[in-house]
Amino acid sequence: MLSKRIIPCLDIKDGRTVKGVNFVDLQDAGDPIELAKKYSDIGADELVFLDITATHEKRKTLAELVERIAIEVSIPFTVGGGVKSVEDAGVLLHAGADKIAVNSAAVKRPELLTELADKYGNQCVVLAVDAKLTEEGWKVHLVGGRERTEIDLFDWVVQAEELGAGEILFTSMDHDGTKSGFALDALRKVDGLVTIPVIASGGAGSEAHFLDLFTKTDVSAALAASVFHFQTIEIPELKHKLAQENIPVRII
């Protein structure tokens, strides 16, 4: 049976991991390679790296980093952050990334999804979408949630699949950082509207939240950052707990 995937997300700036990472047994928790290997060893199913480097020149560092990750790590990984064109994606894919996440650039120019899928196949095109529940419903937000658009979340994910996205990474800005559980209703609706896999993001605070997610929705995967980085939740224990509740997971 296909396992539900558990995916740690690492924020990268200038080739280093940012946001508090607190693995006591790592010599350098700011080294994305060391952290990636650690996660791979303890049973993470995939990794997502989001590059938050501001300047264009420093993006070369990202391609070099991607290649180093690909050399060292034997599980799949997605790279996102600032991908605006087929060329941007090509640099990262050729460096060894398995998938590319696009967010704002696809909102501004939806045909980017089609261009990427035509060139590299939809299996490597992840549409990352950040949304908030407003008085007019769930609206897509840009720039890490700071800029609201009038685009409806549910319309957007359906359109994105038609255009060529192979996977949806949906982050609820209302839940992100709250550690109060995933946006179950919205996730269930997103998942029901598309035939591609959906990754849930935003709100993970306890093992019970993951159990809720996988029993109350059919999403394919859960992504989280700080609960894994600070070892509030240990991936092996989380997976054992899910397995006990008959959620299909990969135990290594």
Binding site: M1, T195, I196, S220
Partner: peptide, 11 residues
Amino acid sequence: DELKVPHMGWN
């Protein structure tokens, strides 16, 4: 078409 496609992940 009834399935989520791509079949993506660990099996």
